[in-house]
Each structure stands twice: as C-alpha cells, then as structure tokens.
C-alpha cells in the first residue's frame, strides 16, 4: 500500500506526511510538488524521531537536584575549597541559555532549572553587604575562597544556605549521604524551593553532617552533587561577605 491509498480521519489522497510517518512510498505518479513535500516531511519526521530519542533518554535519567525525586548517583569528586572552578564549556552554556529563552517564550514556569540571575539586589547581597562592611578583615580572609571568585559563581547553579533537616546514608553508595536542606537563603538562583534534597560526597565534608547543622552549599552547573559544603556560622559569615562582593560581578562573567 502506498501513502496515497490510505484514507482515514483527517487526511485523504496522496499525503506526503503520512508517507513519511509510515515509511511507505509515494504513488508512482506523484508530482514534483508532492515529492518536495515528502522530502520536507521526511526531514521533520527524522528530526522528531531524533528528538523523541533524546528527550526519552534524558527523562529516563534520574534527577539529582529535586525536592522529592530520587537522587542521581553522582561521580566521586574531590572538594574544591580554594581554587575557583575551571571554566566550563561555552557551547553547553549557550545551550542552556537558549533553553531558558525557549521556556520563557512559551510562558512556562519551571522551578527546577536553576538560573544565575546574579544582579546586585534581591536576597543575595543585602545582608552580605553589611556583613562585608562590618567584617572587613574576616571578609578579606575569605578572598581566596571559591565564593570570592565571580568565575566560580558564574558556573554554579546553586549557592544556598540552609538548615539540615535530615541526613540519610545512600543505600548501596559508600561515602555518600542524602541531605534534606531547609533553605534559609538562596544566592543562586535568587529563589529556589524551600526544601532541597542533595546527595553529598562525604569527602566533600570536613565533618559529618548532622540534623540541625547550618550549611552553605554550592553545586556547579553540570554537577549532581555539591562541590562545596561549608558548616559553621563564622566560616559561613566570611563567605557571605565574599559572596556579596563577587555575585554582582559574576553576572557579567561568562561561564566558559
């Protein structure tokens, strides 16, 4: 049967799109116009097939940074405590930016995609600025930390403070803990979910996390686990000051 023989529903007669969908040949007498339509339809169908494959594979993966979803198994990673994170792939950044534009264009609302807004203002810098002024020396002492680096911050998808409300060992994963964080302050993005579940490599911790700990965490854009988990009010206060200075600059720094 050729595509031209199928008559059902909303199509009738020779149909280039149906032929592309079913893989059936066009009728022998198909004209140039129909063949051109068929080529275009085949291209679109091939694209659709490819995209469904990509979307399906992506959706089949588990998520790491999700309030309730299972957490993706992270790669083992050593913490970076002093050096700013290495620049990341520019193409990937642009892809992400375009993805954000697409969502905005259709009016969609998505809370999971963490976006660096980064302009001075909002919740990120008000208290931090006063902290920087009041604690000048302390702030200086944090100058070498990742949070003082706009380049590092530009490549993070989450920088937030919060209280640990639960700690669970990840079954079957040695050296990993799943923590639930009640977010008290989000720097990047400016707003995030009030409860986050994160998988933390124990090697990223200077001491085991406990329920009630106040922490400052940073998750690189393309990582599934924090590469920085800081505990202790004094240490976090120093980083607030560093963040207050570096965040405004981070908005102008491409993550490359």
């Amino acid at each position: 049967m050729t595509a031209g023989h199928e008559t059902h529903g909303e199509y009738d007669g020779p149909d280039a799109l149906m032929a592309a969908i079913t893989g059936e040949p066009l009728p022998d007498g198909a004209g140039a116009e129909l063949r051109a339509e068929h080529r275009a339809a085949e291209a679109d169908v091939a694209l659709l097939r490819e995209q469904l494959g990509m979307i399906g594979d992506a959706l089949a993966e588990e998520q790491a940074l999700e309030a309730t979803a299972p957490v993706r198994r992270p790669r083992a990673r050593r913490p970076r405590r002093t050096a700013p994170r290495a620049p990341r792939n520019r193409r990937a950044v642009r892809r992400f930016a375009l993805a954000g534009l697409a969502v905005a264009a259709v009016g969609g609302v998505f809370s999971g995609m963490i976006w660096l807004v980064g302009q001075a203002g909002g919740g990120a810098d008000d208290a931090g600025a006063s902290s920087a002024e009041a604690g000048g020396k302390a702030a200086d002492s944090a100058a070498g930390s990742p949070f003082s680096s706009p380049g590092y911050l530009a490549c993070t998808r989450l920088v937030a403070e919060g209280d640990v409300t639960a700690v669970q060992r990840v079954a079957g994963e040695a050296g990993q803990e799943r923590i639930t964080l009640h977010v008290t302050r989000s720097y990047t993005p400016e707003r995030t979910k009030p409860q986050l579940t994160l998988t933390v490599d124990e090697e990223a911790l200077s001491a085991p996390l406990r329920k009630g700990d106040h922490v400052l965490v940073a998750v690189p854009r393309h990582a599934s686990t924090p590469d920085y988990v800081l505990t202790g009010e004094k240490a976090i206060a120093r980083e607030r000051a560093a963040l207050a200075r570096a965040l405004p600059e981070a908005s102008a720094v491409p993550c490359e």
């Binding site: 990509m54 979307i55 992506a58 992400f96 375009l98 993805a99 998505f110």
Partner: peptide
Amino acid sequence: LASLRQLEHPSGEDSSV
C-alpha cells in the same frame, strides 16, 4: 526537560530549544 541540566547533542546549542 527544562529542569534537566544536560541534554548533550552533537548538532549544537539549538538542540535544547
């Protein structure tokens, strides 16, 4: 999908859109 961080594709950055 928008919340997923990566969707690797060799054809370039427009693939996410």
